[in-house]
Computed example of a mutant assay.
Amino acid sequence: MHSENWDDLRFVLAVAENGTVSGAARQLGVNHATVLRRVAAFETRFGVAVFDRTAKGYTVRPERLRMIEAAREAENAVQSVARMLQGEQAPVMGSVRVSSTDSLCQFVLPEIVGTLHKDVSGLRIALMSTNARSDFSRAQADIAVRPTDELGEDMVGDVGAQLGFGVYATDDGQKDWLGLAGPLTRSLAARWMAERVAPEQIVSAADSFVVLTYMAGMGLGRAVIPCVLGDADARLKRLDDGGLPSAPIWVANHVDMAGVSRIEATRRYLLQGLDGMKEQLLGVV
């Protein structure tokens, strides 16, 4: 690839990483118009459209994902060679978007990511908090950390720990129940409730275990929530749960991203971090 082509590709990569032209301009230290001109030059030269342009920003087209990843690997390789020539060990570098539930994003992953950043300074981790499954075909995330009993057929990964659940309330005498709504209706906890709790006993619901924890802590009813949330709330006590199942926490990525160095490195750290917290996550007391 000619040097000017590679230089244009740097602008394409910056837009792909930031999702906006303004973000790419800040990263590269140029103005908005320069980014637009360089991206347009690349697309014109190769006769391809790399991005879908929407009101929210720029999204890499599904058929161009492999091209973007190859370009990122090439960029990292060039930087690695430069460091080796300088006698330095070339670290893994790049941005990685990790999609997970609000429970794990608030109570578990920040500690793991903090350790990762201390050990691997070249990686930049963005936590994407959502209880809905991310659409990896549209490049909304690079890695998923999800408590689920099975992965989609287009995903590969490993189980880092088990997420334990319990029934929590402010006191044993609480008879009302708090239900699960939205994406949580597909969870193992929802299946357990459907088999044991009559609909008329459910007085309210939420689509977030974090919200359910607060509601239970206010005395609004019993709630099935992850032990890592319930045990941390001094207002709540764990009641007899009658055999609630635990959910495996998968650390996974799309099959097309297998072998990408920055993603593999991040996955290893996430798996190690989850393993180090396995008793807390399972709710062992």
Rank of each mutant, 00 (worst) to 15 (best):
G230Q: 01
G276V: 05
L109N: 00
E195Q: 13
S187D: 08
P199K: 00
V285L: 12
N253L: 12
T34R: 10
D256E: 11
G114R: 13
I225W: 00
G173N: 09
R196D: 03
V203A: 02
V12P: 02
R222V: 08
L151H: 12
A16Q: 07
F165M: 09
G219Y: 12
M155S: 14
S261C: 12
F107M: 11
L281R: 00
E75F: 06
A132K: 13
A126S: 15
P248C: 05
L104R: 01
M93V: 13
R38G: 02
V12D: 00
L163M: 07
V39T: 00
V167G: 00
A70C: 11
V203W: 02
G23Q: 12
R45M: 12
R38D: 02
L178H: 00
N253I: 10
M257Y: 04
M93N: 07
E200D: 09
R268A: 13
A258N: 15
N5F: 11
A252F: 02
P183M: 05
G243P: 10
A25P: 07
F136G: 01
E88T: 15
M193D: 01
S80K: 12
M193N: 01
A247D: 03
T115C: 01
A71P: 08
V15S: 03
G122P: 09
F11M: 11
A71F: 06
E69W: 11
A205P: 02
F11H: 14
D149W: 06
P110I: 04
V98Q: 01
T20F: 04
W6E: 08
S22R: 10
M93D: 07
S137V: 14
Q201H: 04
Q89M: 10
V35F: 05
I143W: 02
G57V: 05
E200K: 04
V145W: 01
C105K: 03
N31S: 14
Q106G: 09
P248V: 05
A24Q: 03
N76V: 15
V78K: 15
E43L: 08
